[in-house]
Design a protein around this nucleic acid. Structure first.
Length: 405
RNA sequence: GCGCAGGUGGCAGAGUGGUCAAUUGCACCUGACUGUAAAUCAGGCGCCCUACGGGCUACGGGGGUUCAAAUCCCUCCCUGCGCA
């Protein structure tokens, strides 16, 4: 069966609940997409991922190209088959690594900026000394961008690899996901607007080239174009219009945001994108981020936060996040979250998880990942259900009443 | 009993006259994490204070030498190894 999207129910405004149909099954939306960068959701078996209610997983082009190589993954029957996941699959294009291995490399800069981080905003970096520091950082980058593509230096062995839009699409055809993404440039929120503008032109040109290559090869896979534009309303709208009129099966919304007005940026974009095609908000989010994204018209979200937080001891609960390594949890024999229906919460206490983390036992990562993923998947299930029953606003209100962000 | 080696912050272990409140690792405390360079990273970690500065107490106990001692000398206590 070919790719398609049906909308089941529209909210007031931009939000909706729907179904993405793929050759490997349906995805009920809104849906959270666990990240399986290297063809594995870290610390979990595919069976566990499925039991959490996950419908689809997302892997990464850059990582699988480097290791074990996309040709090998193709021989294995695609990354889904390779990793033992029979449901729908997505690959990201490698565009994010233009940022994470480029401007962000070694700096600790996140794609999400808080307004309180104004010191690193471009408009604050006038003086020469800071510019020089910037230049020094650039020297250490593992990704260098030019008009045609991105030169990556492997984070594994230092070898050089040049990605163009065509190359990314070719690799993604080999990896064989149901949904693939155009090659883009995810910019740093610290870049000034003139650079954001220049990068956006590049991303749009790369989107056209990605689409052309994809059409030439007559792949059955669904190609999504990616909207960029950073924190700027003007650029976001230009990008939504440009990408929206291209013949993509769906859209990704990528790039950097100011955390406080991310949902507004999403709205600017989704007011322009054609509504009948699905929208994937790339790399978002935390539990609290999902609401704003959904009510502003996003259907899919992938994010490493639930699994990475889990591995580093931060657990989601209905009253907010907690760090299981805090001393107070050593003797806390209650479950992580009494409201949660996951295996971890049904079976273990906070004290046991605190012990596993302190003892650095592998099971800590597994049990915490089970919990955090289930927490956010359950959240999106409940959100979907609330849309279908016209109770979204009430559900959102009850969530934030007790969730301390 | 004799000989040798040694006793340093919660633990291990540097330092062997001033630059030592004392390297480092672990443990401990706290924070961060949003298309995974990530089972990671950052900060703190003697006590007190009107804390990018100041005061006090500290390197087994006690006593000395010195302007100055964790570092040198004497003595006591304790530990390990060897010999009786």
């Amino acid at each position: 069966m070919a790719f398609s999207f049906t909308i089941e129910k529209k909210m007031r405004g931009l939000g909706r609940a729907g179904v993405v149909h793929t050759p490997h099954g349906d995805i009920l939306t809104p849906a959270f997409v666990p990240v399986a960068t290297k063809a594995t959701v870290k610390a979990l078996t595919p069976e566990q991922v499925r039991e959490l209610g996950a419908q689809v997983v997302l892997a990464n082009t850059y990582h699988l190209y480097l290791q074990p190589g996309d040709a090998l993954v193709a021989r294995a029957g695609g990354f889904g088959k390779f990793m033992g996941w029979s449901g729908p699959t997505i690959t990201d294009s490698g565009g994010f690594q233009a940022f994470s291995l480029g401007a962000a490399f070694g700096t600790g800069i996140s794609k999400l900026l808080k307004k309180s981080d104004e010191l690193i905003l471009p408009e604050a970096q006038a003086d020469i000394e800071e510019r020089e520091n910037e230049a020094e950082k650039k020297a250490a980058r593992l990704a260098k961008i030019d008009r045609d593509g991105v030169m990556f230096r492997s984070h594994i062995d230092g070898s050089a690899h040049y990605f163009t839009p065509e190359k990314s699409i070719d690799i993604q055809h080999n990896l064989g996901a149901d949904i693939i993404f155009a090659f883009d440039e995810c910019t740093s929120p610290t870049e000034p607007i003139h650079y954001q503008r220049e990068a956006l032109d590049r991303t749009h040109a790369w989107a056209r080239r990605s689409l052309t290559r994809h059409q030439e090869r007559k792949s059955e896979q669904a190609l999504f174009g990616i909207v960029q534009g950073g924190r700027h309303e003007e650029l976001r709208k230009i990008s939504a219009a440009a990408i929206g009129e291209m013949d993509f099966a769906g859209f990704g919304i990528g790039g950097s945001f100011a955390k406080e007005d991310m949902s507004q940026a999403v709205r600017w974009v989704n007011e322009i994108l054609p509504p009948e095609r699905p929208r994937h908000l790339l790399g978002i989010g935390e539990p609290a981020d999902i609401f704003g994204a959904v009510e502003n018209g996003c259907d899919l979200f992938d994010c490493v936060a639930p699994t990475r937080n889990a591995r580093t001891g931060t657990l989601y609960t209905s009253t907010g996040k907690l760090n299981i390594l805090n001393s107070q949890f050593m003797q806390d024999f209650s479950p992580v979250d009494a409201q949660c229906d996951c295996f971890t919460c049904r079976t273990y206490t906070r004290a046991y998880l605190a012990h596993l983390f302190r003892a650095k036992e592998m099971l800590a990562a597994t049990l915490a990942s089970i919990h955090n993923l289930r927490f956010i998947i359950k959240l999106t299930e409940d959100i979907r259900s609330s849309i279908l029953h016209d109770t979204f606003e009430r559900y959102k209100e009850s969530f934030f009443k007790v969730y301390i962000h």
